[in-house]
Design a protein around this nucleic acid. Structure first.
Length: 283
DNA sequence: CGGAGTGTTAGTCG
DNA sequence: CCGACTAACACTCC
């Protein structure tokens, strides 16, 4: 369930641990995960690691890039000297690696191993060149945490759109990196109901949505993501990560803001959608 | 057993 | 072209 904050956390951890480390071996245990081949990782190394939306981009020398998308259930777990770092979706039990969901393993010369696990096998790896990277990246909307993502830009992207606000925020072409959980959180914070049509939003509401995006994401990154927990050293803090979610997963519970509404869960924009019927305005 | 689930894309229909 | 919706991907959990 990695969204922007989770992927950001993984990228930061990987950057600190595997940059410039020589790769001894790549083992692809499930072929369909890899588009094309990743053979050229062998004896190679990563020069930089970054994130675009929910996509992880690992730079190789010679303008080649390893792209990794975790989709729904992908995990990246780095093991070295009996410690687990980096992360991905996890239910809290990692156990021994590799396991039956381990589809790719990178072994570094220093003995560290990077495991790519994916229960549902929707995630993927691909090595691309400069031009193909450009093609992939240009499909993404602006990075919400970028300083260039201003209210003015937000208004421009939003202009003329007629769908509902939740679908808009989920669409990676509009803004990169938001997923189901954070969209619900953002709209709760903005007091806007996820079912609202874009053209029904007044200026105050548009502003409130914009102003909710960065704080929600920043807070989540500070907590190292909310949807998985034990991706730091093995004794990670289990459960604490969920405590800061305001609406997601709280169906049937009292709204934490108005204390009057009962959080409702509906299916909307094809996704489970949570909101407070009392304080998230329907029009 | 049925249904839902975090992401994304492709396809259909209006 | 846009938007709304569904299916598909594979598996676990409730």
């Amino acid at each position: 369930m990695p969204e922007l904050p989770e992927v950001q956390t993984i990228v930061q951890d990987l950057r600190a641990k595997i940059l410039h480390q020589k790769i001894n071996k790549v083992e692809v245990r499930l072929k369909k995960i890899v588009k094309g081949s990743v053979a050229q990782l062998q004896n190679n190394f990563f020069t930089e690691i970054e994130r675009r939306g929910k996509l992880i981009i690992l730079h190789l020398p010679n303008e080649k890039y390893l792209l990794i998308h975790l989709r729904m259930t992908g995990q990246i777990i780095l093991q070295q000297k009996n410690k687990q770092i980096a992360g991905g979706h996890s239910d809290g039990k990692l156990g021994d690696l590799p396991n039956k969901y381990t589809h790719v393993i990178i072994t570094f010369a220093n003995g560290a191993q990077l495991f790519f696990n994916d229960q549902r096998q929707f995630g993927w790896w691909q090595i691309v060149g400069q031009q193909e990277l450009g093609n992939v990246l240009e499909k993404f909307g602006p990075e919400p945490l970028d300083n260039k993502f201003t209210f003015k830009i937000f208004q421009q992207i939003l202009a003329g759109k007629k769908g509902n606000i939740k679908a808009f925020l989920l669409n990676q072409k509009n803004i990169a990196g938001l997923g189901n959980i954070y969209v619900d959180e953002i709209l709760w914070r903005a007091k806007v109901r996820p079912t609202r049509k874009m053209d029904s939003l007044n200026l105050r509401e548009v502003k409130a949505i914009f102003q909710a995006i960065k704080p929600v994401l920043r807070l989540a990154i500070k907590h190292r993501g909310t949807t998985f927990n034990d991706y730091v050293d093995a004794d990670g803090k289990r459960g604490a990560f969920l405590n800061f979610l305001k609406v997601y997963g709280r169906a049937g519970a009292e709204c934490l803001r108005c204390k009057k509404g009962i959080v409702k869960k509906i299916k909307h924009a094809g996704r489970g959608t949570h909101f407070c019927p009392k304080c998230q305005n329907k029009v």
